[in-house]
Write a protein that binds this DNA or RNA. Structure first.
Lengths: 198, 198
DNA sequence: GTCCCAAAACTGACTGGTCGGTATTGGAAT
DNA sequence: ATTCCAATACCGACCAGTCAGTTTTGGGAC
């Protein structure tokens, strides 16, 4: 549990991510994780409490870095809601392509109860809330219209997920970003009003 | 495997659906499935080849009935693309609410290979293709515009999934249907000009 | 209707392999 | 000499899958 070596921990996580992404939870052997990470099996238990803890740590870590990246990016450039939404979508898509493994793990099986799982759910919620705040901001500014922004906020990661899951093969990340952005912003934009403001 | 008692098979499937929906695959005990279904454990192996077969059969069965329902409905009332798309979305939402368990099983998600899994994926593809054909029809008719309809077709089940997953709680199915319909049709009905100006 | 019985369906205690988790070892590094 | 840890050995809980035995079914004979 005490973490002494960040690098080793990272190795374990990334090895685990690959395996969890390609096999179901119950098929992933901790001996394989250890081997792939270049550590002894026992060492896993220094860094993680048990198999489930390792699994959710993979998710939590990945998600945290995504959320952080988005936060940073939004902070450094203060823009209008439209630009912020675009940036965020682009970031999520980028993440999904970059960390394919991790992204695939997310579609595996988050069911059951544990503290670490809760922490993962919180992070997830954080992302949704971030998106929600952008949309709400846009509505207040009169740029967007949406009767249920909390639903729309949830849709956005779902769109990325769907595209990758359905694997319309070898799609270009940029094409996907643009399509999702167009899709979402069009839906959020009332035609008449917006044209007027432009 | 090939067995006569439809009712018993259905009992097993629905018991399994509940359990697979609430616990991870590896935590579901076949003895529990058997008990809940009111049959002996051995009987499971008369109706299904093994645990994995049972799992995917749950998915396949549910999905098949959804696809069939949509097919029927579209056949019986020939309408324009807009109406067809609306009907389809409404049907998917209805399904998701009605078979909550089954819908939750779908997020427990499959990795690995097996014949039954392939059959499930085919069904999934069938649904996507159905939606795709409606959109394509709409584009030809000049009602819709979409640079990548194959992406959009995949989004639609994803939207429903996101809404339920995110569980903006106790949302009314009708409200959700309407929101998704508005979201999608708005995105599909505005031409690309707008995006160009942004 | 009812007796008989063979085939089919069903049951659940049992088992054997698997793998999460722990303890031990031995060698490299300091 | 001591610390660290990969490698290895080991343990035992767990549970999918099996199968010998039991029950149900159905149809042929009377």
């Amino acid at each position: 549990m005490q973490v002494t070596d960040k690098q080793k921990r990272a190795n374990i996580l990334s090895a685990a991510a690959v395996l969890f992404a390609t096999q179901a939870f119950h098929k992933v052997l901790l001996s394989d994780v250890a081997e792939k990470a270049g550590v002894g099996k026992g060492t896993l238990y220094i860094y993680f409490k048990n198999k489930e803890d390792l699994y959710f740590s993979v998710l939590l870590d990945g998600f945290s870095s995504l959320v952080e990246r988005i936060h940073l990016q939004l902070d450094e450039t203060t823009q209008g809601p439209m630009e912020n939404l675009e940036q965020t979508i682009r970031e999520i898509v980028r993440f999904a392509f970059q960390d394919r493994h991790l992204f695939n793990v997310m579609r595996t099986l988050p069911i059951g109860m544990s503290i670490i799982r809760e922490r993962w759910l919180e992070k997830r919620r954080e992302l949704i809330d971030l998106i929600l705040s952008i949309i709400t901001q846009g509505i207040k500014a009169g740029v967007f219209y949406d009767p249920h922004p909390e639903l729309t906020a949830g849709y956005i990661p779902g769109l990325v997920r769907s595209a990758l899951l359905n694997g319309t093969d070898g799609i270009d990340p940029d094409v996907l970003s643009r399509h999702i952005i167009r899709f979402v912003t069009t839906a959020l934009t009332q035609s008449g009003e917006l044209k007027a403001t432009l």
